[in-house]
Design a protein around this nucleic acid. Sequence first.
RNA 1: UACCCCGUGGUGUAAUUGGCAACACAUCUGGUUUUGGUCCAGACAUUUCAGGUUCAAGUCCUGGCGGGGUAACCA
Length: 574
Amino acid sequence: MSTQSETGGDAVPSVHRNFIQAVIDADVAAGRDGGRVVTRFPPEPNGYLHIGHAKAICLNFTIAEEFGGRCNLRFDDTNPVREDAEYVESMKEDIRWLGFDWGAGEHYASDYFEQLFDFALELIEKGLAYVDDLDAAEMRAYRGTVTEPGRGSPHRERTPAENIALFQSMRAGEFPDGSRTLRAKIDMASPNMNLRDPVLYRILRVHHLRTGDAWCIYPMYDWAHGQSDAIEGVTHSLCSLEFENHRLLYDWFLDNLSTTYRPRQYEFARLNLTYTLTSKRKLIRLVEEDLVEGWDDPRMPTLSGLRRRGYTPAALREFCAGIGVAKFNSTVDMVKLENSLRDDLNRHAQRRLAVLRPLRVVIANYPEGETEQIEAVNNPEDEDAGTRKLPFSRTLYIDRNDFREEAPRKFFRLAPGREVRLRYAYCITCDEVVKDPESGEITELRCSYDPQTARGQTPDGRKVKGIIHWVSAAHAFDAEVRLYDHLFATPDPSGVEEGEDFTSNLNPDSLERLQHCKLEPSLADAEIGEHFQFERQGYFCVDTTDSAQGRPVFNRSVSLRDAWARIEKKGTQR
RNA sequence: UACCCCGUGGUGUAAUUGGCAACACAUCUGGUUUUGGUCCAGACAUUUCAGGUUCAAGUCCUGGCGGGGUAACCA
């Protein structure tokens, strides 16, 4: 198992102990389970893993590692109508990618179907479970409501012998789907709805991804989960807050069964993130209604989407370590996620020059036909990254954002009569703005350079505050670059007006495709999945799906922090 | 309306048996800088409210207020 940063082993240990670590500290100190710590991550294979799962994965695996224990990967495959082997594979891939290793601990709840069946027999023999003939609607009526007690089913008092025979017949396929259930006999008046004789088994003739057609009865979550934990020797079973009310039931089963181990369930708050959703149902809608391009669309909060967007395992793990674990239902600011990516990539991504919205610049006093090679640093945060050469010539491209015909206050980039430095190269002054006579659009800038200002020098000591990036026109490499923004325009996408749903909060500008961006020539060899910082703009990676050999497509993973954008925004708000 | 859980800067988490409210991110102000990036320094809270216990309460007790969860043969 590895929780070290994949890109450098520099993950910062969290300073604070969360409440779960505190519980385990105490358990270990008290010698419970002989000081053994076993956790598990128990996804249902019915969808793709997302950033919320990453929190649970990191929690379970890092706790196991911290206490010298292990963490199992257990697929909770108890409902074959929604589950598929495709999801099993994608989940394993995502967890491995995050950097965690479950070793021999790959399990399936379905591995325990036979033993679960025996446990059910044990419960029946003890008079604690019975076969019920009520259908779903009747059962709901008998259950009562949250404020009114329920009533016992007319079949509640069958004898153990009768129940055993009936349950065996259920398994043998003698009854139609949905006609009977096995229920625990607990308390139909309990204020905790989970204790009002919960269903243990339902009849379902559906092909199961692992057991095929061997079973026509399938266990419910509550019945399978705690016993699976016990079978695996799990000591601390961590789940999300909505299972708090299930803990009584979890304990009731274990207390009434002859299991060897006695796991304990602890609940923590699941992750909420601004400008995004982690509801499985809603994510499915986005995919099925083609509101995104699939589960791995770079705007999706799925791990496959984040991976394609350019998120690194180290950034995700650092994020998960930084948000903490508690019982308070909170919402983490998306900038926190973005910042953990910036942190990682700042240290590890090589810098490149890329012009996304090209504006032609001709340096009138630079010799025609001449090219010089200018040295550029690959990563100022990492000396070992070395340097590279950039071709410089008379005709360049700069970004349209870096030129204004009328420069606002505090704008210290290029404008008529103004001087800026071309990064790593010379200072240039804008002498003339060339426009299309018909459209009025700026087509070219005529500039002059100062030969004395190579490599950051200004012999006369004058200050040139503005520094902009550039690419030599003749050497530039054309590519498509995709700029991604939040999938949703509002911090809480599920908050909507009457009659609308979350899709009305989608951000219409979440994707901007730029064709014919002008990139420095070295980028032509960029490999799929490789990360770069395009200087002054952001972190980009080579798209894994739409890139071809020698024709990379770049995704913006996250922009750089932009002080000028903030100044400008403040100005327009006044 | 019943039961369960939770309320600490803008956000997310800390705070030993009750003992100077800490850390990170964000924001703002400065500094460094051939990325308006990074980095460095500083600023930013009467711990939801009201009582009570105590020399001392974020922490313990009572009550209020606010938020979340729970009535699938889903997980």
